Amino acid sequence: MLNKSITMLALSAAITSFSAPAFSADLVLYDALDFSGKVAKAFEAKTGLKVDVVEPGSTGEVLGKIAAEGDNPQFDIVWLDGSAVMERMAADHILQPVPADLIDKAAFTDFGKSLIPTSHAFLPTGASTTAIEVNTKKVADDKTPKSWADLKNFAGEVAAKDPNLSGPAYQWLAGFFQTNGLDTGKDLLAKVLTNKSQSGLSSGGKVNAAVLTGKASVGINQDSAIFSKIASGEPVKAVYPSEGSIALPQGLGISAKTQHMDAARKFIDFVTSAEGQAAMQDGKDTDFYFMPLIVGVKGKPGRPADIAFIKLDDKVASSHEAEWKQWYKDHFVP
């Protein structure tokens, strides 16, 4: 009888933990950004609130975890690179609009204001873009590509990320189709990404490694990943393609089913403050090299701010997300 009671209690506890939020913290954050842990610790020290930082891995893995949770989401806020994926989650009612007063309160630069979605699906906390990463020891100055079209000269030697795993890579792919046209873009990629062992990489770190080890001469990579390597003295440079650079916002979104809205509001307030922005730059990995969107905040040394950005058509990109990711997987992923 005692064993049966213990078993029933254990089963009851398991059911309860599955059907209710599994965390006892004041706020549960899902993310795929290098600086989130630093920001959470600084926020905890400032407010006394407890944040559970859950990092399943890449953006694709975070999105997969959210999808698997279905109608029982376990997160309060999510922080990812990419406006298209955030707009899609808002359209699917996974996210709720960020309150207008929080957006209005933040001291956004003009560029920052331009990245605020009309839907308020997310709050932009910083930005980057995708550039051409060039190994300066393998590629002479007069051979350096200046456009996406020039990458045809490096067919088989181009490293790239799989958009199914990388948020920045999907933002780039959708932007690539926007600036080149869908059919022309697909045709160009078919001529450039001819080596599947290098075109289906899972992260910017692996693109960096491929370019630095010589497995690839050039890479299609998030510019902040390139600047992190430049800062450490590696022989690479970032080239912004002549076709234009699609803006890649870091998006902070709020779960449609959060029960911790007050804590979420406080976290957003902190992230957009000078103190929160400082925590976002307190490191040397890729995401610490973002372009700030808050007035008075400067990027890390070496982070350019004079890029001519193109804004992604998020409605088109989010509506074709599954289709274009599958197309890329079918053609360029081993």
Score class of each variant (00 low, 15 high):
Lys146Ser: 15
Pro163Asn: 10
Thr184Ser: 15
Asp150Leu: 04
Gly181Cys: 09
Ala160Pro: 00
Pro163Met: 08
Tyr170Lys: 08
Gln171Asp: 14
Asp150Tyr: 13
Phe177Leu: 01
Thr184Ala: 15
Gln171Ser: 03
Asp150Met: 14
Gly156Gln: 08
Pro168Arg: 13
Asp183Pro: 01
Phe154Pro: 05
Asp183Gln: 13
Asn153Trp: 07
Ala159Thr: 06
Gly156Ser: 08
Asn153Arg: 00
Gly181Asp: 14
Ala155Arg: 04
Gln178Phe: 12
Ala169Met: 11
Lys146Met: 14
Phe177Lys: 01
Gly167His: 02
Leu182Cys: 06
Gln171His: 08
Ala159Glu: 10
Pro163Phe: 11
Asn180Pro: 03
Gln178Arg: 03
Phe154His: 13
Gln178His: 02
Phe154Ile: 04
Asp183Ile: 11
Ala169Ile: 03
Tyr170Thr: 08
Lys161Tyr: 06
Trp172Arg: 00
Ala149Cys: 05
Gly181Asn: 13
Trp148Ala: 04
Lys152Ile: 10
Ala169Asn: 10
Asn153His: 11
Ala159Pro: 00
Phe177Pro: 00
Lys152Phe: 04
Lys161Ala: 09
Ser147Tyr: 06
Lys152Gln: 04
Ala155Asn: 06
Ser166Asp: 01
Lys146Trp: 01
Ala159Tyr: 03
Leu165Lys: 00
Phe176Glu: 06
Ala159His: 06
Ala169Val: 03
Phe176Lys: 01
Gln171Glu: 15
Val158Arg: 07
Phe176Ile: 02
Tyr170Gln: 05
Gln171Arg: 05
Ala160Val: 00
Lys152Asp: 13
Thr184Ile: 14
Trp148Val: 10
Gln178Thr: 13
Ala169Asp: 14
Leu151Asp: 05
Asp150Arg: 12
Pro168Gln: 13
Asn164Thr: 14
Leu182Tyr: 09
Leu151His: 07
Lys161Val: 07
Leu173Phe: 01
Ala169Phe: 06
Asp183Asn: 15
Ala155Ser: 15
Asn180Gly: 12
Ala160Cys: 11
Gly181Pro: 07
Asp183Phe: 10
Pro168Lys: 14
Ala155Cys: 10
Ala169His: 06
Phe154Tyr: 10
Phe154Trp: 03
Lys161Pro: 09
Phe154Asp: 07
Leu173His: 08
Gly175Glu: 07
Gly167Trp: 02
Pro168Thr: 15
Gln171Pro: 02
Asp150Ser: 05
Asp183Val: 13
Asn164Pro: 00
Thr179Gly: 08
Phe176Val: 11
Asn164Glu: 09
Gly167Ser: 09
Pro168Phe: 12
Asn180Ser: 15
Trp148Asp: 05
Gly167Arg: 01
Lys161Met: 08
Trp148Tyr: 12
Ala159Phe: 10
Lys146Leu: 14
Lys152Pro: 05
Thr179Asn: 15
Ala174Pro: 00
Ala149Ile: 13
Gln171Cys: 01
